[in-house]
Simulated scan of single mutants.
Amino acid sequence: MNLSFAAGRIDPGTVGIMRGTLGPNGTDETVTVTFSGRTDSGMIYRAVTLREGGQCAVLTLNFSCAITLEPGQAAALEIYLYADALNAPGIARQQFTTTTNLTAQANSQTSSIPVGLLNESATLASTFSTFPIATFPGALIPLLALLLLALAATETEKRRRRTLPSDTKPSATNPPRSES
């Protein structure tokens, strides 16, 4: 079993692809291999494929694949692992196990993958979450007061127009009267 993830992290809400190989079969006889994996909650297996004709069954947190390898044959493997946008752990741990009809070839391996945003927008977002909000709103208070005043004036004008008698409402043909 030779598995590796691309360097870096998996971002929450994205799928990471793990590629590797099963085999090659180093014996002089045909070997039936069962390859299985399980992961932490907050991570989801989207798909697992064996290119050389193996069959894989994928459940949410685990999968199982079966393949028969002839002497010297290897199988290319792809695991698509999704990090949930809200519930992904900081580190995704996976436990992989191979069992065969030859007990000497049984194997297991643990994979740990960091999960988290590693880009400029994540850094920017983290600065907002620690921004001293107590010193910031002073500049917004006059703007908020003006917006509320404009809303109140608009509502007052709407109410005034609804209560005017119909013959005194301004229109294009009947402009407002001016008293002298």
Rank of each mutant, 00 (worst) to 15 (best):
T32F: 04
V33R: 06
T34K: 11
S36Q: 13
G37Q: 02
G37M: 08
G42L: 05
I44N: 10
R46H: 07
L50I: 09
L50R: 09
L50M: 11
R51D: 08
G54F: 02
Q55Y: 05
C56Y: 03
C56V: 14
L59P: 01
F63I: 02
S64R: 10
S64G: 10
A66I: 12
T68F: 03
T68N: 05
G72I: 03
G72K: 04
Q73W: 08
Q73L: 09
A74R: 07
A75D: 13
A75I: 04
E78P: 00
Y80V: 00
Y82L: 14
Y82N: 10
A83C: 06
N87S: 13
N87C: 04
N87E: 09
A88T: 06
G90W: 04
A92I: 04
A92R: 02
R93F: 09
T97I: 14
T100L: 08
L102I: 14
Q105H: 09
Q105M: 15
N107P: 00
N107L: 10
S108L: 03
S111D: 06
S112M: 12
P114C: 05
V115D: 02
N119F: 01
E120G: 11
A122W: 08
A122N: 09
T123E: 12
L124T: 15
T127E: 12
T127N: 11
F128K: 04
F128Q: 04
S129A: 15
